[in-house]
Simulated scan of single mutants.
Amino acid sequence: MQWGVYIHIPFCRQKCFYCDFPSYAGRENLMEAYVEALCQQIKIQGFSYRQKWGRPATVYIGGGTPTALPLENMAQILQTVENFIGAEIAEFTVECNPGTVDAQYLQMLKANGVNRLSFGVQSFDDGLLRRIGRIHNSAEALEAIRLAQEAGFANISLDLIYGLPEQTMEQLQASVGQALNLGVQHISIYGLQVEEGTVFARQQELGKLDLPAEEEAEAMYDYMTNVLPQHGYLRYEVSNFAQRGYESCHNRSYWHDVPYLGLGAAAHSYLEGKRYAAVADIQEYIAGIKAGDEIWKLEEEPTRQHAMEEFAFLALRTVEGLAARDFAQKFQVSLQEIYGETMAKLAQQGLLQVDDNGCRLTNQGFKYGNVVFAEFILD
């Protein structure tokens, strides 16, 4: 059975001003105990699901900043994962931030089975990096990726954000140019979202967040989605572009209804059609693992209607779209019967392409994906 593993590292050197992920700066004193608890969970729950489903197809270590962990702690996690998996797998990703890795750290990752890196670059403009609270500068980002390539990594992704405070089109174009010159295999693009509880949210409330106008942010989106395919980075999901054959297998599993086991504080799991969340507090997680307590809770009891909506939303994020055959196989009812009117309406608006095989977003549909997804909510 195909399934994946997500491992959460809730530590970072500094909380970025836009970040609302469950991650914490200044908790270095908890790192060693956290790693011990995490490795214990991997050994118990990981091996349990390995016995049940066989080896996972993918492993993804995210955060936070996984590489904020000292080298020896990360090596301990990787060796525990290697024992649990039992052999090399096709895709083993670790998120990295420039400024937290050097040649020795990258070589250790490579030696312990990691074969894909995802760098949170966000921009190659030093002023913008300071403005958004990143700990690295552009030179460190370039150096980190160069060192990763020298260490033998041939599957590297980087993230870029558009619509940043005071960002200009010229700055964005320069960052995209730098990314293309690096020859990485995968590029993710994200429009800035001001999330509740972040530094940016507080700045916005005080009138101190100077964001590009909506038309400027839209022009940035258009530029990126037009230029990346011209340089061999093909879109395969709303925010993701890759050279052919380098699409993220792990991320694809999220959009194609593949189960995954989340390990670590605040990690989410999707198992047997149900979604679970682990406790987010680091100390509560450590204590729970040590005591053998239940650290997961069911997010909500899924209804058939909610399952249909979620299946549709996630599939529509991909260029393949929502397959009529897959929908009918999962729910024992035709896609046309449930969503026929919705699909016809969105096709008329130029947001969906519909045929006997199902439906998929048009270029305009990708641009206004949230409009499309809202229409797939069942009354």
Rank of each mutant, 00 (worst) to 15 (best):
V238K: 07
N112H: 14
A277N: 11
A307E: 13
K52M: 14
A103H: 07
S175N: 08
G113L: 13
M169I: 04
R252Y: 13
Q107A: 15
T168R: 07
R130Y: 03
Y285Q: 14
G358I: 10
A90L: 09
Q243P: 00
H268T: 09
Q45R: 13
Q193A: 14
E237C: 05
G207L: 10
E337F: 11
L346D: 06
L346M: 14
E36Y: 14
E140P: 10
Q167R: 02
G62R: 10
R317C: 08
T318W: 04
A25C: 04
A57K: 15
G86P: 03
T65H: 04
A75I: 05
S157H: 05
A278M: 00
L164E: 00
Q122A: 12
S138W: 00
V5P: 11
E32N: 14
Q305N: 06
H8K: 02
A287R: 04
M108I: 06
L109F: 09
E284R: 11
R275L: 12
L69T: 13
L261C: 08
M1E: 12
T225I: 14
R275Q: 15
L164D: 02
V194L: 01
I161Q: 01
L69K: 10
A213S: 15
G197W: 01
P229H: 14
E284P: 00
L164V: 02
V227T: 15
G365V: 05
N155G: 07
K110C: 00
E272Y: 14
R202N: 10
N155L: 09
H8Q: 06
Y339S: 13
L211A: 10
P66R: 02
R146K: 14
A174L: 11
L316P: 04
K43F: 09
Q104R: 15
Q149D: 08
E237Y: 12
L69W: 11
D159C: 03
Y368P: 07
L180K: 09
L78W: 04
D20R: 03
T168F: 01
I145G: 11
L234H: 13
E310T: 08
L69V: 09
E32I: 11
Y221L: 10
V319I: 14
Q353I: 01
K330T: 13
A277G: 13
N97M: 06
E32W: 04
I187Y: 03
G64L: 07
K52S: 06
A111I: 00
L263P: 10
G63S: 09
G321P: 04
Q332G: 07
T93H: 07
L298T: 09
E72T: 09
V258A: 13
